[in-house]
């Protein structure tokens, strides 16, 4: 078990290093940051000086080594566009994105599991058909269309929810800003989190449903029924628990992609998170911010994968033994 975790940690470190290399490599060949930073009247000499100052003339390997050493300490350099340390900028933006992703993940998991269970257990029920048809809409409509639709209905037509921003934010002692402590913050997060969660909800729903249909045919379910166990214990104990492995896998991956998808949602709702920061960074070829974003997203993916692997052990006793032996 410990062995396995160590192996996973090493793997994760390698993945992170590759991502760091990629992001470093890619962005060093995207556009010329200098020309975006300087004004019209600056001379070539000014530009060369700035280039030296930013270390852009050093050999590749030196630049990369510096990048990794700094990145590990959370130092991604100075944003070309904002002329401030990237870590400060990211620290300002991260809470917004993480809160959005967190709320969306909760919505996706709760609704996905509930809907998947219902449609899996009551195949023929009319409401199952409604849910399944609805979920088709969820997977086929692009995120921004759903976002704009929601804005139109709830912000423009009925004017009960705001169409942009985070609402009122409270700054905690740790410097973390949260919108989850104010009413306007909660109101503001409803539409974006629903928009972001919709696709993931339908995915989780469909997986739970098909797993449930599969498991309900298993011999041990038949044997559980033959022992006269209550239907409730069979459905929510024996059956649901056996669907968890694939569900954890998918849910884990999907939470990762929530972070990635949040770029679109944040743009639609002008959500002040990392996604919109990234979009602005792209427009300005703000390399340090872009690479910080990429590395950050990769880091979340790797962490989630690690947690998923550990959850397998919690759920499935067969794995525990195989690894022990």
């Amino acid at each position: 078990m410990l062995n396995f975790i160590l192996k996973r940690l090493v793997q994760s470190a390698i993945v992170m290093l590759v991502v760091a290399l990629l992001s470093f490599f890619l962005f060093n060949f995207v556009g010329d940051p200098i020309s975006n930073m300087v004004g019209q009247e600056s001379t070539t000499k000014d530009m060369e000086e700035l280039r030296d100052q930013l270390g852009l003339n050093d050999p590749f390997i030196v630049q990369f080594g510096r990048f990794v050493v700094n990145a590990v300490q959370g130092d991604f350099g100075i944003s070309y566009r904002l002329q401030r340390p990237v870590e400060d900028v990211v620290a300002e933006r991260m809470p917004a994105t993480l809160e959005l992703v967190f709320v969306s993940a909760i919505i996706a998991i709760l609704l996905g599991v509930a809907g998947g269970l219902f449609t899996g257990l009551k195949k023929k029920h009319w409401f199952s058909k409604v849910i399944l048809t609805g979920s088709l809409v969820g997977v086929s409509l692009p995120t921004f269309v759903i976002g704009i639709l929601l804005i139109y209905v709830f912000a423009v037509k009925f004017q009960i929810l705001p169409s942009f921003g985070r609402g009122e934010v409270v700054t905690l002692d740790s410097g973390w800003t949260t919108g989850l402590l104010t009413l306007s913050g909660w109101k503001a997060i409803i539409l974006p989190s629903i928009t972001l969660a919709l696709y993931q909800t339908t995915l989780i729903l469909r997986i739970i449903r098909s797993e449930m249909l599969e498991v309900m045919r298993a011999d041990f379910i038949k044997f559980a029924r033959a022992r006269g166990l209550r239907q409730r214990d069979i459905n929510f104990g024996h059956a649901l628990k056996n669907t968890l492995i694939p569900v954890i896998t998918v849910a884990g991956l999907q939470i990762g992609s929530l972070i990635a998808f949040s770029i679109i949602t944040e743009t639609v709702f002008q959500w002040p998170g990392m996604g919109s920061l990234f979009i602005q960074a792209v427009q300005f070829a703000d390399v340090p911010v872009m690479s910080a974003y990429l590395v950050m997203v990769a880091f979340f993916f790797v962490m989630i994968n690690l947690i998923v692997d550990l959850l397998y052990f919690v759920v499935d006793p067969r794995l525990r033994v195989e690894v022990r032996g």
Binding site: D219, F220, F223, A226, K241, N242, P317
Partner: peptide, 19 residues
């Protein structure tokens, strides 16, 4: 079922819940 009638199926490998 299970109280007055006990049932035994063919395959012991799949009759028990693995978890």
């Amino acid at each position: 079922r299970g109280a007055e009638i006990g049932v035994i199926f063919q395959d012991p490998l799949t009759s028990l819940n693995p978890l």
